[in-house]
Amino acid sequence: MSDTTIRRVAIVTGGSRGIGREVAERLAADGQAVVIAYAHNKSEADDTVAQITSTGGSAMAVQADVADEENVAALFDTAEQAFGGVDVVVNAAGIMLLGTVADFDLDALDLMHRTNIRGTFVVDQQAARRVRSGGAIINFSTTVTKLALPTYAAYAATKGAVDTISLILARELRGRDITVNAVAPGPTATELFLDGKDQETIDRLAKMNPLERLGTPGDIAEVVSFLAGPGRWINGQTLYANGGTA
């Protein structure tokens, strides 16, 4: 498919690994040109691009700090120059640092705030200005905002902010035919999630939902694909993609 015939163009932040990579590959399979924004993992981002292009898709990788407004503006510039515009923006970039409120490192809190809150806000700001009519903005939240698990307060607080940004932005874009939603995964079998957990912990988390398994990145990508394409009547919502965990 040539660039001139591509109907939709997606930017996926955090698209070099984990759920973000699965989302990028799924949107490419749906026929969208994908611009993968990565912070540090150039080799993994390039590998994702190679995987997409090897199956006939269109993709490119761009390094960007999501919390830096100049980096993000340049990211959108690149997408527009390469593919003609932007229709879908998926904010999959994020970090998770855990600890009790009493003992949490405040520098870690600031770091997580910068990526998860400021990063979402900066990307959404450009998206609000530049996404074309008929487009979709999809942010990433978490089911932990409902589960209220100990040690997750700082992380859940950043994602509670994402829920609020998403709802209000959806209302601010009245009349533009652009949807804004957040996807809130439950425990999902990514490398990041599984790292450092023993089998007993993994099994316990898997059985928290009635389906009695962990989610997969593909499960989450399917939800994003729906919101990025046919799901035009869902707007201003946080969708809990967690198998019924909460």
Rank of each mutant, 00 (worst) to 15 (best):
S141D: 10
S133W: 00
A241P: 07
Q32R: 00
S16Y: 14
I168P: 04
Q32D: 08
T158P: 08
S2G: 10
Q63I: 07
P185H: 08
G84W: 01
I52E: 08
L214F: 11
A170C: 02
V9L: 00
R118V: 09
I165G: 01
L192R: 13
T13M: 14
Q63R: 15
F226Y: 07
D177W: 03
D203W: 09
F104I: 06
G85N: 03
L106V: 09
A182K: 14
P230K: 08
L192S: 09
G18K: 13
G231L: 06
G134Q: 02
V88D: 00
D87S: 06
R118Y: 05
P230Q: 06
S225R: 02
G57H: 11
A92S: 15
R21F: 08
A154Q: 12
Q126W: 01
G15M: 12
A154M: 08
I138G: 14
D195W: 07
G119F: 12
Q237D: 14
K146Y: 03
R174F: 12
L173W: 01
V90N: 02
D3L: 09
Q81C: 03
R213H: 12
V101D: 05
H40P: 02
V123K: 04
A148N: 03
N116Y: 04
T48W: 13
R130G: 08
S166D: 08
F226C: 07
D107L: 15
G135Q: 00
P210W: 09
A79W: 00
I202Q: 12
H113P: 11
A39Y: 13
A64P: 14
N116T: 05
R17I: 08
Q32P: 01
E44A: 14
D77E: 13
D124I: 02
T143N: 10
L173Y: 00
G196F: 13
D87M: 03
V180D: 03
N41Q: 12
N91C: 08
A10F: 01
I52M: 07
I52H: 10
K42D: 12
E69C: 11
T164F: 07
G18Q: 13
Y240W: 11
R232T: 15
R176A: 01
K159R: 03
L211N: 12
W233P: 09
Q199C: 11
G196I: 15
D177M: 02
D110S: 15
G236P: 11
I168W: 11
V12Q: 04
S54P: 15
D30H: 01
R213W: 13
V23L: 06
A29G: 08
A161W: 06
T245C: 08
D163R: 10
I95R: 03
V35P: 03
N181D: 15
F83C: 01
I234W: 13
V89S: 01
P150R: 08
M96Y: 13
G15Y: 06
A156Q: 05
E25I: 11
T158W: 05
